Amino acid sequence: MKATITKAAIAAIAGLAIVADAFLLFVKPHLAQSPQSGTSGSGSSGGANDSGTSSGDSSSSASSGELKDGTYTSVASPNAYGEIQLQVTVKGGKITDIATVKMPTHGRSQSVNAQAIPELTDRAISAQSAEIQFVSGATETSTAFVNSLQDAINQSLNAGE
């Protein structure tokens, strides 16, 4: 009984951390850009609650030419089954490679991640953004992947400042 309560408390804290990360990763960069666009405040916070089904048309997380070349290792993003950490390579201002540094490998997570991570990687490289469609049946993995990816993108956007 005590272990169940402890696990629930950890999951709740991890959930709050994800919400805080989402604010820092999705909302704060848009707020910093708002003086340039004037009225970007009306739709900029939608990314924090996005289900991952964005078409990519309003992708502001990684527009062409804004990313600075280099290799960026994200913070480890927790989910209910473990953590996902990515290493993103940017060349010519484009995301060229996404390597998984850390992911859950126990139990069912191993098979889910074996299918979901390559698909999420392909989607992210194609979109050049963290605004990608989630993999069905891998919501926890998709959420952690997107949060980790957005952290690495933010590192690239802020490199040299």
Results as ranks from 00 to 15, higher is better:
Lys91Ser: 15
Phe145Tyr: 14
Val146Trp: 01
Asn147Met: 11
Gln110Val: 04
Ser74Gly: 08
Ile132Cys: 01
Pro104Glu: 05
Ala12Ser: 13
Pro35Val: 06
Thr96Gly: 05
Ala17Asn: 11
Ile95Tyr: 05
Thr100Leu: 02
Ile125Arg: 03
Gly43Trp: 07
Asp151Ala: 07
Ala48Asp: 00
Ile10Cys: 01
Asp57Asn: 02
Ile95Asp: 03
Asp97Leu: 08
Leu86Val: 14
Gly65Asn: 04
Leu149Ile: 03
Ile95Pro: 02
Ser44Phe: 06
Phe145Trp: 04
Thr96Asp: 09
Lys94Arg: 12
Val146Gln: 11
Ser156Trp: 07
Ala11Phe: 03
Met103Arg: 15
Ser111Tyr: 11
Ser45His: 11
Ile132Arg: 03
Ser126Glu: 10
Leu24Asn: 15
Ser55Phe: 04
Ile95Thr: 15
Ser136Val: 09
Ile13Asn: 09
Asn49Thr: 15
Thr89Tyr: 01
Gly43Ala: 06
Ser63Cys: 06
Ala76Val: 11
Gly47Val: 03
Leu24Ala: 13
Leu120Ile: 12
Ser44Gln: 10
Ser61Thr: 15
Gly46Cys: 04
Lys91Gln: 14
Phe145Ile: 01
Gln115Tyr: 07
Ser60Val: 14
Ile5Val: 06
Ala138Gly: 06
Gly65Ser: 08
Ser34Thr: 14
Ser156Leu: 05
Ser63Phe: 09
Ala22Glu: 07
Leu67Tyr: 13
Ser61Phe: 08
Glu161Leu: 11
Pro78Lys: 05
Ala17Asp: 12
Gln128Asp: 08
Val27His: 05
Ala3Pro: 01
Gly38Thr: 10
Ala14Glu: 06
Leu67Asp: 09
Thr53Phe: 12
Ile117Asn: 00
Ala20Gly: 07
Phe134Tyr: 14
Ala62Thr: 11
Gly43Thr: 12
Gln133Trp: 05
Leu31Arg: 12
Thr6Ala: 11
Ser55Pro: 01
Ala124Asn: 04
Ser109Asn: 10
Ser40Ile: 03
Glu161Lys: 15
Gln150Asp: 09
Ser109Val: 07
Pro78Val: 07
